[in-house]
Design a protein around this nucleic acid. Structure first.
Lengths: 101, 101
DNA sequence: TGCTAAGTTCGACGTAGATCGAACAGCACT
DNA sequence: AGTGCTGTTCGATCTACGTCGAACTTAGCA
């Protein structure tokens, strides 16, 4: 059982906003938040293909919004709420609190 | 001296985030906020052409983030901070409070 | 040693969007 | 009326990005 977590810096505000402006990615972020911890990729989306999902995960990671970790050989994605809050206070939390519409 | 202000609904969260994810538009929003009231278009940007700026203003308006008003024959843009806050509490204010980077 | 399941990477494709110049429209001022 | 300023609209262009299928990698398990 392995446990890896390579965490980088939170990206620019532009990157974070751009990452969250896509409906598929915002839904992913909402689900990660609901999970409350590392969640396997497959639970964080439907509607799109596996390769598309992987692409979105990469963008979220590069924006510093999420983190990838490997648990028991399975890739998991995790929301970096605290890190993003520390960098841009209130931004991510208020977006998560906003009605889905 | 005329004073016109046709205000519509604030758009979806996606629309608002997409509107703010562009560097040119975020800068416009920041300047409008700094102005504190209706400001003539020309004061809200440089770097891009007039037609491009007009295009960005339109997107901001359609997202419900800003409002267009005509004062003394001059077009002015105004940030609808209160309206956006009422719809998505904390989102716009926290973005404005975030460091520019 | 395969076999399957889970993610990633790699082109390729199509569409949305950022950009500009040029032409147009409205208004103020002479 | 004419002139200049300000902003919008219209095509055109070019790039960025979302999307997919197929091929590859890795890990666990029979």
């Amino acid at each position: 059982m392995t446990d890896t977590a390579e965490t980088t810096e939170v990206g620019t505000l532009q990157e974070v906003l751009a990452a969250l402006s896509d409906p598929v990615r915002l839904e992913m972020v909402r689900r990660m938040h609901a999970e409350g911890g590392p969640a396997p990729c497959a639970r964080l989306y439907d509607e799109v293909s596996k390769s598309t999902a992987s692409h979105h995960f990469k963008i979220l990671r590069e924006a510093g919004v999420t983190n990838r970790s490997v648990i028991g050989g399975q890739t998991h994605q995790e929301l970096r709420l605290d890190d993003v809050e520390a960098t841009y206070p209130g931004v991510l939390s208020s977006i998560l609190a906003a009605p889905a519409r």
